[in-house]
């Protein structure tokens, strides 16, 4: 399928990214080149070949089903920008036109 500015906008939406209008053309052009490059794989015969999805084959690694102390809650909040009553606080948004997320 041909990739055009519309496809790029669609995929950017899936990835929660925004491409500004000025750079859309260059960006689309780059993505087209990248996709063309990876599509060299089309010429490879992979009929009946099982895919490899892991770094090395290892079957289910289990730990003992034993409760262990987790990380301290206060520690976990150290990188939170703003918090309130033990929750992560985010900017007020629902009164600003709602959300489609």
């Amino acid at each position: 399928m041909a990739i055009n500015e519309e496809t790029v906008k669609h995929v950017a939406g899936l990835a929660k990214l925004e491409i500004d209008e000025e750079s859309l053309k260059t960006f689309t052009n780059e993505i087209v080149q990248m996709v063309e490059m990876v599509e060299q794989l089309e010429e490879l015969d992979t009929d009946g070949v099982e895919g490899s999805y892991h770094g090395h084959p290892q079957i289910n690694v289990w730990r003992q089903d034993k409760a262990e102390k987790g990380t301290d809650r206060e520690e976990l909040f150290k990188n939170v920008e703003t918090q309130k009553n033990g929750f992560v606080e985010v900017p007020d948004m629902f009164d600003k036109g709602g959300s489609d997320a």
Binding site: A15, K16, L17, E18, I19, V90, P91, M93, K96, G97, G98, S99, D100, A101
Partner: peptide, 14 residues
């Protein structure tokens, strides 16, 4: 630059 929940994701990442 946040106006909606979607903005938090999209603007922060972009």
């Amino acid at each position: 630059n946040i106006g909606s929940l979607e903005d938090i994701y999209v603007k922060s990442r972009s």
